[in-house]
């Protein structure tokens, strides 16, 4: 294993999406990283920018798009920040590491690319005013300090995209005003989203350029606490129903039982955290993906909102074969609710 892939694994794995359970909090404090605290009021636009005293952070956009002929596409753009130690330093000595993932999914093909960079030299970073997040020539740029109007670009050796995004509602703060508790052990992260973007732009594929339109969802999260030892992976859903309602739900799979949580977002943009265990998801069918068996159809339930729906991958092979590989792709929803969304699954061997 190369140094690079180990570093990449450390970036994505240590402080995983929903860092929950175990004693991880103890270790983090000893390392000198800041810990999320309840009652901290998120402060914008400053909190759109990086938090170098926290171990891990990301700017995570997924989009469901269609071309004029009604073909489905999915786009992912992610910038991860991971600190080896708290704080910032100039030049190569910066302890801040950055990793970008870009994905483009069609019903038949999956394209992806990865970028790694160090903080301190300007190759990657995020500024809050005006908002700008970049790694190499991949950029998510705002016109002002808000996240309301963004342009998004990325390119790999066989694909590229150039999109513009317009927010259609307020930011959603998960958990308790953005303080999102992740386990009974008390671990938490700061977590907010902009789940409602109208998107238009161009995808460049090996066969040529395609004009697309659709909806996008941006997640912002930062924390310092790593996954517990017994946890093997997670399944994360961001779903947009045709009713205008939205659901973010996740399941952390562990030896000592699964842990699930999420947020219900009403059509008017108001949101309510789900109680642990309220969101349920069961795999229905599996597919062979890169030598692994991965569930590509799910049955999800959220009884308190009358949700009982089937989630179906648009492309079973939405595999991100990056240094730390995982499944991430667009899905369609049918059943009690209809709509579209994004699914991320890790830890399937």
């Amino acid at each position: 294993m190369s140094v690079r892939s180990i570093v990449a694994t450390v970036i994505i794995c240590l402080p995983c999406f929903a860092s929950a359970q175990g004693f991880a909090g103890l270790g983090s404090q000893a390392d000198g990283f800041a810990i999320p605290e309840k009652g901290y009021g998120l402060n914008f636009p400053a909190d759109h920018g990086p938090h170098p005293n926290f171990r891990i952070e990301w700017w995570y956009l997924t989009a469901n798009l269609k071309d004029d002929d009604g073909h489905d596409y999915g786009v992912q753009w992610t910038l991860f920040r991971s600190a080896i130690s708290p704080g910032e330093d100039t030049g190569w000595s910066s302890p801040q590491l950055w990793m970008g993932h870009a994905g483009l999914t069609t019903p038949k093909h999956q394209f992806y690319a990865e970028r790694l960079a160090r903080g301190g030299i300007g190759q990657a970073g995020v500024t809050a005013e005006p908002f700008a997040a970049w790694i190499d020539n991949w950029e998510m740029l705002g016109t002002d300090p808000t996240l309301n109007q963004l342009s998004l670009t990325a390119s790999g050796s066989d694909f590229a995209y150039d999109l513009s995004m317009q927010a259609q509602g307020p930011l959603v703060l998960h958990g308790d005003a953005g303080y999102s508790v992740k386990s009974s052990g008390g671990q938490a992260s700061y977590y907010y989203s902009q789940p409602r973007y109208d998107i238009s732009g161009t995808l460049t594929l090996p066969d040529g350029a395609v004009i697309v339109n659709g909806q996008g969802w941006l997640d912002r999260e930062w924390s310092s606490q790593p996954l517990a030892d017994d946890q093997s992976g997670w399944d994360w859903f961001s779903l947009s129903f045709d009713s205008g309602e939205k659901l973010m739900g996740f399941i952390l799979r562990g030896d000592s039982g699964d842990y699930s949580s999420g947020t219900w977002i009403a059509a008017d943009g108001s949101s309510k955290p789900l109680l642990p265990g309220a969101f349920q998801a069961q795999p229905l069918t599996y597919s062979e993906v890169e030598g692994r068996t991965i569930p590509v159809q799910w049955q999800i339930k959220l009884p308190e909102h009358g949700v009982s729906a089937t989630i179906q991958a648009i492309n079973d092979q939405s595999w991100m074969g990056t240094s730390f590989p995982y499944w991430e792709g667009p899905v369609t929803i049918s059943g009690s609710h209809t709509g579209h969304g994004y699914l991320e699954m890790t830890g399937y061997d």
Binding site: S2, V3, R4, I6, V7, W92, L97, A117, R118
Partner: peptide, 14 residues
């Protein structure tokens, strides 16, 4: 070398 961008480095045993 920049470990994040350099090609495989067998000389550096991880």
């Amino acid at each position: 070398v920049d470990l994040l961008s350099h090609p495989e480095l067998p000389a550096m045993p991880t």
